[in-house]
Computed example of a mutant assay.
Amino acid sequence: MARNKLGDLQNHLFEQLERLNDENLTGEQLETELKRAKAVSSVASQIIANGHLVLKAVQLKDNAISADVQVPKMLEAGDD
């Protein structure tokens, strides 16, 4: 299973931008690339939103007055 990082996402987004900037793309090729760009953008937005949610969960736990605050397992930021 791939273990991608946000830096990898950034690279993918720039690669997509470069493909969109290809002046040799015309007609059907351009339309296909535009559809791909929309899909990449949609997935990237979800990855970023998920990262933001994990960050908020970590901040909540770190800022909690009680040490007994439990963050749901699915929101933990872990290396597994």
Rank of each mutant, 00 (worst) to 15 (best):
A2Q: 13
A2R: 10
R3Y: 02
R3I: 01
N4K: 02
N4G: 00
K5R: 09
K5Q: 01
L6P: 03
L6V: 00
L6C: 06
G7I: 00
D8R: 00
L9P: 06
Q10S: 06
Q10V: 10
N11H: 08
N11R: 12
H12I: 07
L13E: 01
F14Y: 14
E15F: 06
E15R: 09
Q16N: 10
L17G: 15
E18H: 06
L20M: 10
L20S: 07
L20K: 03
D22S: 10
D22H: 03
E23H: 12
N24G: 12
N24E: 15
L25T: 05
T26F: 06
G27E: 11
Q29P: 07
L30Q: 10
L30W: 04
E31A: 14
E31N: 11
T32Y: 06
E33C: 03
E33G: 07
L34W: 03
L34F: 05
L34H: 06
K35R: 13
R36Y: 13
R36E: 11
A39L: 03
S41A: 05
S41F: 02
V43D: 11
V43Q: 14
A44W: 07
Q46R: 11
Q46S: 12
I47V: 11
I47L: 00
I47K: 04
I48T: 09
A49H: 01
A49C: 07
N50C: 07
N50P: 03
G51N: 15
G51V: 05
G51Q: 13
L53F: 02
L53P: 04
L53A: 12
V54N: 11
V54Y: 06
V54P: 08
L55P: 02
L55H: 15
V58S: 02
Q59I: 02
K61Y: 03
K61M: 00
D62E: 13
N63Y: 12
N63E: 15
I65T: 15
I65E: 13
I65A: 14
I65V: 13
A67Y: 09
V69G: 02
V69D: 12
V69L: 15
Q70R: 15
Q70T: 15
V71Y: 01
V71C: 05
P72T: 12
P72Q: 07
P72K: 12
P72I: 10
P72R: 09
P72N: 14
P72H: 11
K73A: 04
K73P: 02
M74I: 04
M74H: 08
M74W: 09
M74A: 08
L75I: 14
E76T: 15
E76H: 05
A77T: 06
A77C: 05
G78T: 14
